[in-house]
């Protein structure tokens, strides 16, 4: 049962930002993550500021410069089924479709998906863990099967979002409105590692609201995909996932973005893998080297060593599929 709080539903952004000024207030978009946290006492709230009455935060549209704007209140279902997204950013549509369940996608928003709190069972459960202000991360010596293999320090959460790695791979930017006005943050620098800040997972300051996400156009002919592995067929977070965007000439990689989900406290961009791929032809050797690069530096805990294997597996598998569906590089043939 939810504890007590007040609820306001302003109709303008200005009002919403004002309402958020008081301490203990939280943004409510779809509420699917927020209400779960409040019910389980992960954190408390004095006031819920619902932004669902603010029309300008909805919808997907393309802009003249070729960029696409996704309002923060756009539901995951809308993202997953939008022809505009499917045509231009297949991996985002796939990532949104792979999240949670149909009902949650009908209700959960893209803004909320980026800002949802971690799913670590100690954090969500009745444990006074480090991230909640306690003094231990229980994952270190505990049940850490689902925890991170990259980027952990003191706390070993993984970032739960499926759309976040996709958006990072697409060089998307978050447009943020706060008490001091607007600011724009590339998604690649939106998320925060525990080493930097233990109490939050992103750069949002209190009182700030994501208004929309903008996506630059992908170079023509680019391909992208999102591959998610989970323990159960649906309704399950990623054990590991791979957001991949590539520009190829034949089988030669001209540009790539490789971002992993489910393995780090933030969407984990693997620049090393991108480096391996750059200018190389996709062939079994490149695939192997790319997979190696993606796992380099992994520091598994006692129970999550499988994630290293898994990263290797999905990187190889996804690249192989792309390799097999593309003709060999013309220069090679001649």
């Amino acid at each position: 049962m939810l504890p007590k709080f007040s609820h306001v539903r302003p109709s303008s952004l200005r009002q919403a930002v004002q309402q958020l000024a008081s301490s203990g207030s939280h943004v409510h978009a779809g509420g699917t993550d927020l209400l779960g946290c409040l019910r389980d006492g992960v954190f408390g709230a004095e006031k819920i500021v619902s932004i669902t009455g603010i029309g300008e935060l909805r919808g997907i549209n393309s802009r003249e410069d070729g960029a696409v704007r996704i309002g923060a209140l756009t539901t995951l279902s809308e993202v997953a089924t939008s022809p505009l997204i499917a045509q231009n950013y297949a991996l985002l549509a796939q990532a949104a479709a792979a999240a949670a369940s149909p009902q949650l996608r009908n209700q959960g928003t893209i803004g909320g998906n980026l800002c949802q709190r971690p799913r670590c069972w100690y954090f969500r459960g009745d444990f006074q863990c480090l991230r909640k202000g306690g003094d231990t991360c229980f994952a270190i010596n505990g049940e850490n099967e689902f925890h991170c293999v990259f980027g952990g320090s003191r706390c070993y959460i993984v970032h739960p979002s499926d759309t976040a790695p996709a958006l990072v791979a697409l060089d998307a930017r978050a447009h943020i409105r706060g008490p001091l006005g607007m600011r724009v943050v590339p998604l690649g620098s939106f998320f925060v590692l525990p080493a930097l800040d233990l109490a939050r997972e992103n750069v949002l300051r209190s009182g700030e609201i994501i208004t929309h996400i903008s996506l630059p156009p992908l170079a023509p002919g680019s391909i992208s995909s999102y591959r998610k592995v989970r323990a159960r067929g649906s309704w399950d977070f990623a054990l590991a996932g791979l957001a991949l965007a590539l520009k190829l000439t034949g089988r030669r990689v001209d540009w790539s973005r490789v971002v992993l989900s489910g393995v780090a406290p933030i969407p984990w961009r693997s620049s090393e893998t991108e480096k391996v791929l750059l200018g190389r032809d996709l062939n079994p050797r490149t695939l192997r080297e790319a997979a190696d690069a993606a796992t380099r530096g992994a520091e598994p805990l006692s129970q999550n060593g499988y994630k290293v294997e898994l990263v290797r597996g999905i990187v190889e598998e996804s690249l192989r599929a792309i390799m097999e569906s593309h003709p060999e590089t013309p220069s090679e043939r001649t």
Binding site: L35, S50, P102, Q103, L104
Partner: peptide
């Protein structure tokens, strides 16, 4: 707890009545 809200299925447990 699934209900339809404007023809879309949603969980009524995660929907505040005021929403």
């Amino acid at each position: 707890c699934t209900v339809l809200i404007d023809d879309k299925s949603r969980y009524s447990c995660l929907t505040l009545a005021f929403e």
